[in-house]
Simulated assay, not measured.
Amino acid sequence: MIELLRQWLTGVTCAAMIAALADSLTPAGTVKRIGRMAGGLLLLIAVVQPVLEVDFSALASASVPLELEESELEKTDLEWMKTIIGRETGAYILDKAEELGIPCQGVTVTCAVTEDGVPYPSAVAVSGTLTQAEREELSRAIETDLAIPADRQTYESEDEEP
């Protein structure tokens, strides 16, 4: 990289020196104006030459890894969204249970993804010592508020052996 920069600066310097020499050697008048214009064009070519030598096909192939990184980022973002939705939904269920006076030790929410790529809470596991009436009441609240059907809700008692 430094070598390319050195070559470019050398080329620009040489072009400037040639243009200055030609300008000083030409007689005044129309010939001098034409000489200055030619020297300016020579200097412009020397400055722009690295851009003209760029291999654009190499730049096009460099975009493929960027596309791969983008898809990896989308996957990571989706996982983060699922995690956040699961945590927030679990916190909501714990708050709802507390509001109803139902003792819960923990809630685990499983998220799924729609065909459009949107994550949503699809299943829930509630742990704690709940009576059958409390389970039914919390199950109705979860189904009503979060649209998680009762068949995707599980209740694990702290007293039960796994």
Rank of each mutant, 00 (worst) to 15 (best):
Q132I: 10
I93L: 03
A133T: 14
E136D: 15
E67M: 11
I18L: 15
I84T: 15
E137H: 08
L130D: 01
R140Y: 12
P50E: 08
R140P: 00
E79S: 12
E79C: 01
D95Y: 04
A15M: 01
D159L: 10
C111A: 09
L44W: 02
L78N: 12
I2S: 13
Y120N: 10
L44F: 00
A91T: 05
Q153R: 09
G35N: 15
R6M: 07
L41D: 06
M1L: 04
T30N: 13
V48Q: 06
A62M: 05
E98T: 07
D95M: 13
E72T: 06
E74I: 11
A16L: 14
R87E: 05
K75E: 10
G35T: 15
K75G: 05
A147S: 14
L138M: 06
M17A: 09
L5F: 10
M81H: 13
A60T: 02
M37E: 14
P103V: 12
E156T: 12
A133C: 03
C104G: 04
L42T: 12
D145F: 13
E143Q: 13
L9Y: 02
E70W: 09
P27Q: 10
A150T: 01
R87G: 00
T131D: 10
A46M: 09
Q7R: 06
K32Q: 12
R6L: 08
D55P: 03
L25K: 04
V47D: 03
D145I: 08
G40W: 12
L66V: 10
